[in-house]
C-alpha cells in the first residue's frame, strides 16, 4: 500500500512539474513560436488563452487531492480574503503591489501546495471584488500561483534573520519573474505584430528575447517591476518578523505546519 501511494505521489509530483513547465511555455510562446505565418500565430494566441485555464485547473486538482482539511481550508480562506482586500487597498498607486508579501510569507510557512492555491486564489478573489475578470485572469492566477509554489520550497534556514533575508531575496526575484511573465502575456496583446518592438514569428529565441527586453524597457514595465520588488521586499522586511510568528502560531495550533521535505 505504501508503495502504491508512493507511486501516486511521484506521478503527482511529475505532473506538477510538467504542468508548471508547460505553463511557462504558454506564457512565453512568442519566444518559441517557430512558425513564420501571422495567421498561425493568431491561432496560437487563441489556443493559449484557452489552454491556461486548463493547466490551472489541472494543477489545482493535483493540489486539492493532497487532502485539504477544514483547518487548512479556513486559514486559506482568510488569508486569501486578507490578501485580496490588501491588494484592493494598494491598487491605483503606480508601482505599489501589496499582494505578494503575504503570498510569499504564507507559502513559506504552509508549504508549496498551500502557496499555489493562496497565490492564484488571491488574484481570483480580488478580480471578482474589483470586477477585473478577463482573459488575463488565468495568466495572473498562474503567475501568482507559481510565485507561491516557489516560496514554499525555499530553504528554512536556522535563525529568524537568515530566513527573512532569504524571503527578501526571493521577493525581489519573484517580483521580476511575475512581471516578466505578465509582460510576456501582454506583449503580443498590446504590441501586436509588425512594430519595431513586436515579436517576429519564426525568428530566433535570442532576437525575440532582445525585442522583449526592449519592450519591457520602453513601455516602463521594468519600472513597474522595480516598484513591485521594492514594495514587496520592504513589506517583508517590516512585517515578516511578526507575520512569521503569527502564522507559525496558527500553524501549530491547527497542527498543519509545513512538513519536512515539502
Amino acid at each position: 500500500m505504501a508503495r502504491e501511494f508512493f507511486v501516486a505521489k511521484m506521478i503527482s509530483r511529475l505532473s506538477i512539474c510538467l504542468a508548471a513547465l508547460s505553463s511557462v511555455l504558454v506564457f512565453c510562446w512568442p519566444l518559441f513560436l517557430g512558425r513564420a505565418n501571422a495567421n498561425e500565430s493568431q491561432v496560437a494566441q487563441t489556443v493559449f488563452i484557452l489552454l491556461m485555464p486548463l493547466l490551472l485547473i489541472l494543477l489545482l486538482v493535483e493540489f486539492a487531492t493532497g487532502e485539504i482539511g477544514s483547518k487548512q481550508l479556513a486559514i486559506l480562506g482568510v488569508l486569501i480574503a486578507l490578501n485580496a482586500v490588501i491588494r484592493l487597498l494598494g491598487a491605483g498607486t503606480a508601482g505599489i503591489e501589496t499582494a505578494f508579501f503575504l503570498i510569499i510569507i504564507g507559502a513559506y510557512v504552509f508549504g508549496s501546495s498551500f502557496g499555489f492555491i493562496l497565490g492564484s486564489g488571491s488574484l481570483f478573489v480580488s478580480a471578482l471584488l474589483s470586477g477585473g475578470v478577463g482573459p488575463w485572469l488565468p495568466f495572473q492566477m498562474m503567475a501568482a500561483g507559481l510565485v507561491g509554489l516557489g516560496a514554499g520550497t525555499l530553504w528554512r534556514a536556522r535563525g529568524r534573520l537568515a530566513q527573512i533575508a532569504i524571503l527578501i531575496a526571493y521577493a525581489i526575484v519573484a517580483a521580476f519573474f511575475y512581471g516578466a511573465l505578465m509582460t510576456m502575456w501582454n506583449w503580443p496583446f498590446l504590441a501586436g505584430l509588425g512594430t519595431t518592438l513586436s515579436f517576429v514569428p519564426g525568428a530566433s529565441i535570442v532576437s525575440n528575447l532582445q525585442r522583449f527586453i526592449q519592450y519591457e524597457i520602453l513601455t516602463g514595465g521594468l519600472l513597474w517591476d522595480l516598484g513591485r520588488a521594492i514594495t514587496t521586499s520592504a513589506l517583508i522586511a517590516l512585517t515578516a518578523p511578526a507575520l512569521l510568528t503569527s502564522l507559525r502560531r496558527a500553524a501549530n495550533r491547527a497542527g498543519i505546519a509545513r512538513r519536512k521535505g515539502e
Partner: peptide
C-alpha cells in the same frame, strides 16, 4: 487514486506535447 493521478499526468503531458508541436516549425 492511481488512475486519477495517471489521467492527470497524461492530460498535462498531452498538453505539453501539444504546446510544443503548436510552436514548432
Amino acid at each position: 487514486i492511481l488512475s486519477a493521478r495517471l489521467a492527470g499526468f497524461s492530460a498535462v503531458a498531452l498538453s505539453g506535447i501539444g504546446v510544443y508541436l503548436l510552436l514548432a516549425v
